[in-house]
């Protein structure tokens, strides 16, 4: 399941990125256990017929592994226990403990605003809309740590085309679920629901992934189940989780962190090592992978995706539009 394809940048792996042998071995051991458990779970889930194509490798990896990076992957255990999902608590370990109360079925996304016809898409319809691809992306948090995660989904552009937005639509807004009953830990002082947004061209960029799974299995609740977006060239908080509504607009939509502290979190929030967060430098990041201690590595412009996205921001002052 955790296919690592031969990337063209394989040769540029720095020695600091190589996982020590003993760590790798212990990771391999737990990985095998995890795969065994995963297979058993997968069989059960298929029998129950609820997880759709996600656990079926032939569907999960239809076509090929379309995007990958040479960096060692973050173990699932770390990606699933170190989360920012404030609706389930503000400490990193709280979402993993409290997101169990999130009900991911029934689930639907309402599509509204500047579209030919408003529509509601059921999660199981969405899952089958396009074949799922496996994409290994770098994930850079605004807090200067990062992970490398294999996601399962298809390009957000596929969904947007399906929604038939009007030519007047310049932005797209994503609203996450907010239900006080399912999220008793949600702190007050935030204007819930969580809201994020993109310029239309950003949303249509092939890198933007509508995501249903990771590590070849269904997304865990704390990671944004049942459906989220992943925007690997932006800080993690732009990648809205547990989405229930998509609104096409002609005005820049409200985004939650920008409302809370506009000096710290801009609308664009593209990964940029040259523009500091007011309270820390963004030039480096702690890479959380299989190694015992995270090592610090330089942060890349657009998180290393400049070739695919820099064109969208040509001529823009990225220090002003951070």
């Amino acid at each position: 399941m955790l296919i690592r394809s031969e990337g063209s940048r394989e040769s540029v792996i720095r020695s600091s990125e190589i996982t020590p042998q003993h760590v790798f071995e212990s990771f391999q051991r737990s990985r095998r256990q995890f795969l065994a458990t995963g297979a058993a779970l997968g069989a059960g889930a298929l029998a129950a017929g609820r997880l759709s194509g996600l656990v079926q490798p032939s569907v999960a990896h239809a076509g090929s592994v379309t995007y990958t990076v040479p960096d060692p992957q973050t173990p699932l255990q770390k990606a699933a226990t170190y989360n920012n999902f404030y609706e389930f608590g503000t400490d990193k370990d709280e979402p993993a403990r409290y997101a169990k109360t999130l009900k991911t079925r029934p689930w639907a996304i309402a599509v509204e605003g500047l579209v030919k016809k408003p529509l509601t898409l059921d999660i199981d319809t969405l899952l089958k809309l396009r074949p799922l691809e496996n994409r290994v992306y770098r994930h850079r948090c605004v807090e200067a740590w990062s992970m490398v995660i294999p996601w399962d989904g298809y390009s957000l552009s596929e969904l947007i085309n399906h929604c038939q937005p009007l030519p007047s639509a310049k932005y797209v807004q994503f609203l996450s679920l907010y239900d006080k009953k399912q999220m008793p830990q949600a702190p007050s002082g935030y204007d819930w629901p969580y809201s994020e947004g993109l310029r239309m061209d950003e949303a249509m960029n092939p890198l933007a992934l509508l995501t249903f799974g990771f590590y070849g299995q269904t997304l865990q609740n704390q990671n944004g189940a049942p459906v989220r977006i992943i925007l690997p060239w932006k800080y993690g908080f732009k990648s809205a989780k547990s989405i229930v509504k998509i609104i096409f607009t002609d005005k820049q939509p409200r985004t939650l962190w920008n409302e809370i502290a506009s000096g710290e979190y801009g609308f664009y929030s593209n990964v940029n090592p040259k523009v500091d967060h007011p309270r820390w430098s963004q030039a480096h990041e702690r890479r959380i992978d299989g190694s015992l201690f995270p090592h610090t590595i330089p942060t890349l412009m657009f998180n290393g995706y400049a070739d695919q996205v820099a064109g969208m921001y040509a001529g823009m002052n990225l220090a002003k539009y951070y």
Partner: peptide, 10 residues
């Protein structure tokens, strides 16, 4: 015990 979480530095 290798129980310092995903981000031991933090």
């Amino acid at each position: 015990m290798d129980d310092l979480g995903a981000d031991p530095v933090n």
